[in-house]
Amino acid sequence: MIKEKDHEIVFKYTCYRREDFSVCVGCKICASVCSVNDLALNVNPQELLLKLFVGEKIEDDHPLVRYCTSCYRCTAACPWQIRIPEVVRAVKESLGMESRFEKAFKKSLDIWGRVYEPFVVAMTALDLLRGGYIKYMPKWMGYAGFHLPHKVKRLKPTNASKGSNPSEEGRS
C-alpha cells in the first residue's frame, strides 16, 4: 500500500508536482482508450491521479499498475497529455511490484550497461518454465543466437558531465 508520505516518491520520480494533477478534469477519456480495458479489467487511470492529488492510499496489486502496457494511448487522448504510464511505473516501483523479469533486466544493466538477453532468460528460467512459455519455443527459434556480453565502459553520467538535467525542460 502506498501511504500519503510515499506519494512524494512518486512525484519525485515522475517530475510532476502534486498541483500538476489539479488540471485533470475527470473526463475519463484516458479510461475510454486504456489498453488495460481491452482486457476487461475496468480500470480508470484518472482515479490513480486523483488518489495522488488528494493524498489517498493506493492499494497493493492495483490492476492498472500490474497490467499497464505503457502504450501512451491515455497520454495521446488526454487534453493535458499527462504521461500516465510514467506515473503508473513510478507507483509500481514504490509498491515494489516489479517482476523478476524486470529486476533481471535492471541487474543486467548494472553489470554490463546493456541488456544481455541470455542473462535475463537464465535469471527467469523457472518462471518461463512454470509459466508455460516452452510451447512458444518453436516460434522463437528465429530470435535465438549466441553472442558474448559487451561491457559498457560508461553508463551513468560522470561528475564532469553532470549538471544540466534535460528532463525538467523535457516535460510537456
Binding site: Y13, P85, R89, A90, K106, R154, L155, S167
Partner: peptide, 18 residues
C-alpha cells in the same frame, strides 16, 4: 560504447533520462 536506453523499465524519469 553505447549503453542501454533503459527501455520502459525505470519509474524514475531522471534516472531514465540520464
Amino acid at each position: 560504447d553505447w549503453n542501454c536506453c533503459g527501455a520502459l523499465e525505470y519509474g524514475d524519469r531522471n534516472e531514465l533520462v540520464s
